[in-house]
Design a protein around this nucleic acid. Sequence first.
RNA 1: GACCCCAUCGUCUAGCGGUUAGGACGCCGGCCUUUCACGUCGGUAGCACCGGUUCAAAUCCGGUUGGGGUCGCCA
Length: 483
Amino acid sequence: MTVRTRFAPSPTGYMHVGNLRTALYAYLLARKHNGVFILRIEDTDQEREVAGAVDIIYHTLRQVGLLWDEGPDVGGPCGPYIQSERKPIYREYADKLVESGHAYYCFCDKERLDMMRKRQEAEGKQPKYDGHCRTLSREEREELIAGGRSWVIRQRIPDEGMTTFKDEVFGEITVENATLDDNVLLKSDGLPTYNFANVVDDHLMGISHVIRGIEYLSSSPKYNLLYTAFGWEIPKYVHCPPVMRDAQKKLSKRDGDASYQDFIDKGYLNEALINYLALLGWNPGNDREKFTLPELIEAFSIEGISRSPAIFDPVKLAWLNGEYLRALTPEEFTAKAIPFIRKTVKREDVPLPAIAAVLHQRTEKLSDIPPQLDFIDTLPAYSKELFLHKKSKTTFENSLASLRAAREALAAIPPENWDHATLHATLMGLVEKLGVKNAIVLWPVRVALSGKEFTPGGGIEIAHILGKDEALHRLDAGIEKLS
RNA sequence: GACCCCAUCGUCUAGCGGUUAGGACGCCGGCCUUUCACGUCGGUAGCACCGGUUCAAAUCCGGUUGGGGUCGCCA
C-alpha cells in the first residue's frame, strides 16, 4: 500500500506554526515511505474565507521545503483539490447516505435549534440535536423542499451501541454512540461541513494516513461511522497533541507568537524553525537535536509522536536558530545580516562584512542585530566612569595615557591601510611597547570608540568599522573627557 | 457539566518491571578572553498524589488531583 498523506488547511489568513508542524509530520511520513504528499484546500466556510490566504499557504510550504505532489496548482489524479470546487461530489455522496438511511434531511431553522439548545442546557443536559426531522417521510420531505424550505443533511448516529476506533498515537478509543450528535453533513448552502468533506475527500484521494490536530480526535468515531456506512476502508489516524503557549493556553495568533511569517520577519531561519517544530512533540528515539529536512525524513516515525501537549519555548528556538546562524559561512551570514544592520546603520562608508563578522557569534535571531549597532552612526553620550573596569584594573589615569598613545599610533596608519590586520598589529604592538596587559589599552579604546559598556567586537574591530577619521575623533573626545 | 484524552527537571524529552532516572534549552559557577558573546568544563533541578499488583514500580492496575480536547449549518 502506498502511503498518501495530506495537509488540508483552511485559508483563514496566516500560517499557524502548529498547523505547520502538522503539515511537516504529514510530509515527513509520506517522504519516509516514498509516498505522496497532497495539499488540499478546505474552503467550505465562505464566511471565514480570507483573500490571499491560499497564496500564503503555498508560499509558506515552499519556503520551508514542504513540496506537495498533488494539489490545486500542480494538479493530480484526484482533483479538484479545492473543496469549494468539489461541491457536486459531496451532494452525490450525501444522497447515497440518505438513500441508505445513514443520513436524513433536516429542516429545523436556527431559531428552533437555538431554543432547543437553551432548553437542554437549562435541564443540565448535553446539547444535542433532538432528532426532530429524523422521522420525516419521503413525501413530507419532498413537500417541504417544494415549498422552498431550506434544508441540511444530518448524519444519523445509531441510538445505541459503541464505536471503537484506533489512533496510531493514542491507541484504541471507545465511545458510546449515545454521546455522539447527529451532525450536519451538508449545509444549506450546499457545501459540506468539515465532518463530511474530510471523509469523502480522504477516501476519494486515497489518503492512507490522516494526520491532523487532536481537536478532531473526539469526532473521529463519527467519521468511522461514515466510512463504515459507505463501506470504505478506514484510514490510519494520527492525531497530534496541540502546541501550547503555556500549560493552559494554546499558541494563538493573538499572543503574537503563532504566525510563521512573524518568526521569519524576526529573523528566524526556515531550517531552524522546521527543526524546532519537528522536535516539539516528536522525538527520534535518541539524543540528536539538529536535523535538516532530509535527515528528518530519514528519522521520522509515528512512534516518536508524543501524547501530551507541548509548550512552545521561544528561548530554545532562539538557541537553535543561533546554532544555524553560527553555522553559516561568513558570506551567507553577511547577506542575511545586511538588511538588519541597515535598520540602524545609515552611514554609507562602513565595511558591512566587518560589521557582520563581529555580529556573527553574537546573534541568535537577526532581529538581535539593530540594537547592538546603535553606536556606529553617532557616539552615544557616556559617563567617564565607563573607563573604570575593575577586572582589567583600568583607572582614569592609565586610560588617558592609553588613549593618547593609541591616538598617536593610529594616526600614523595610512588611511589605505586601515584594516583589521594593521590595526591589530598596531595596537598589540603598542601594548607590547608599553608592557601592559591588553585590556589596559584596549578597554579604554573600546569605551572611547563606542561609549558603551558592551559592544559586538572589541577596540580593534570597532576602530576598523568606524573608519580612521571617526575613530580619531572619538579618541580625541575620550581624551578630552579624561583630561 | 457530560464524554474522550494526557501526566518524568521551569521547558522539550529519553525511559516500555531491576538505571547513580539520561540528553537538550534555561539558570548558576570555573576556564578562555579585548567588553559582551562564542567556545569549553562543571553544577542546579524531575518521576503530581494515594492505594494496589510484584521479590522488585517512573514503568502495570485503580482512584484522586491537575491539564488538554469535544459538545456549531467552524474547521
